[in-house]
């Protein structure tokens, strides 16, 4: 496990400090309430997903074991693989759109000028709205006859406003709406990080005659490396939560053009009422989430934890 190191590390520190530290140490009881709560409402459900994946259950009555039926079905079910592909495409697209935008805006917003402060406070407005509110608002804008799509669709290659109803347009809509919602958050991260870059680095570069672009490439970008990693990983893991946007905006359509994996699971469970098979898809989601979160721990939290551990 990735977390083995901090623990081992603590063991090392522990031996060293034993002689001097006499402060009271809390026992395991302090963690029990949180752990119990977490186990019951997150751990146990995870276990039950695994159990349900070997059952057939239509949501009524009691689940029945059906062996490996669901799993063998997964192998031959092209719709799941298609959903996985759409999820991957959407995740990559969202990352590729959001990262440069948030990076540039964050660096810009890090400046202390008054106009930047005012503009950034407007930038952050989407942060105040729920996914549901945002998706519903965009849906009204996307009406091809009476919404903004009717007026401005031809500027972006949709002269008839048929954006949300075309496979590519719908995928684009999800990317745009997600960016509208989440770029402000990532801008915030970059803004905070940029403000921590020591000014002396820029001063030295200016003395050497480096221009703005070179300073950005050789000072700002390398200094923001950790933030880029953190923000990217948050985006990757967060991409699993685009489900709500998709559910309200496109419902996975048109056809199955935006049918991402969580949406596919939701439909299988709560529209087709195949809870057992949906549990198999859910486990695939967990596997994905775990893989992506291992990235988080490895790249960001991990390094930080190690350094802060020295302080104990």
């Amino acid at each position: 496990m990735t977390t083995a190191l901090p623990a081992a590390r603590r063991g090392g520190v522990r031996a060293a400090e034993k002689s001097t530290d006499r402060a009271a140490r809390p026992g395991v009881l302090w963690v029990v309430p949180a752990a119990l709560f977490f186990m019951v409402f997150a751990g146990l459900p995870l276990l039950l997903v695994a159990v349900l994946s070997f059952t057939s259950w239509n949501g009524l009555g009691t689940p029945r074991f059906n062996g490996l039926d669901n799993w063998s079905r997964l192998l031959s079910d092209s719709s799941v693989w298609q959903s996985l592909r759409i999820s991957a495409i959407l995740t990559v697209l969202c990352w590729a759109v959001q990262t440069p935008l948030a990076l540039l805006l964050g660096v810009w917003a890090a400046g202390r000028q008054r106009n930047r402060a005012v503009l950034s406070s407007i930038f952050f407005l989407p942060l105040l709205m729920s996914t549901a509110a945002i998706a519903i608002t965009w849906l009204t804008l996307l009406d091809p006859n009476f919404g903004l799509a009717a007026k401005w669709g031809h500027y972006i290659g949709f002269p008839d406003g048929n954006i949300i109803g075309s496979p590519r347009g719908a995928l684009g809509c999800v990317v745009v709406v997600v960016a509208w919602q989440f770029v402000p958050f990532h801008t915030l991260l970059y803004q905070a990080a940029t403000r921590q870059i020591p000014q002396s680095l820029y001063d030295a570069a200016t003395v050497d005659g480096a221009g703005r672009v070179r300073q950005f490439r050789h000072i700002t970008l390398p200094q923001l490396r950790n933030t880029i990693v953190t923000s990217s990983v948050l985006m990757l893991v967060g991409s699993l939560t685009y489900f709500e946007t998709v559910l309200i905006l496109t419902g996975g359509g048109p056809g199955s053009a935006t049918n991402i994996l969580p949406q596919h699971m939701y439909m299988t469970a709560f529209r087709d009422y195949q809870m057992g098979y949906a549990s198999v898809i859910a486990l695939a989601l967990v596997a994905l989430g775990t893989a992506l979160s291992l990235l988080i721990v490895r790249f960001s939290g991990f390094a930080k934890m190690r350094s802060t551990l020295e302080g104990i």
Partner: peptide
């Protein structure tokens, strides 16, 4: 805490970061 159980539980929570809420919605 210096208890091994506590660090074990901490690891559990770290692993919990990975569970997407949607995936557990059925149970």
């Amino acid at each position: 805490s210096r208890s091994r159980a506590v660090s074990g539980i901490f690891r559990l929570f770290l692993a919990g970061l990975a569970i997407p809420a949607q995936a557990t919605i059925i149970p």
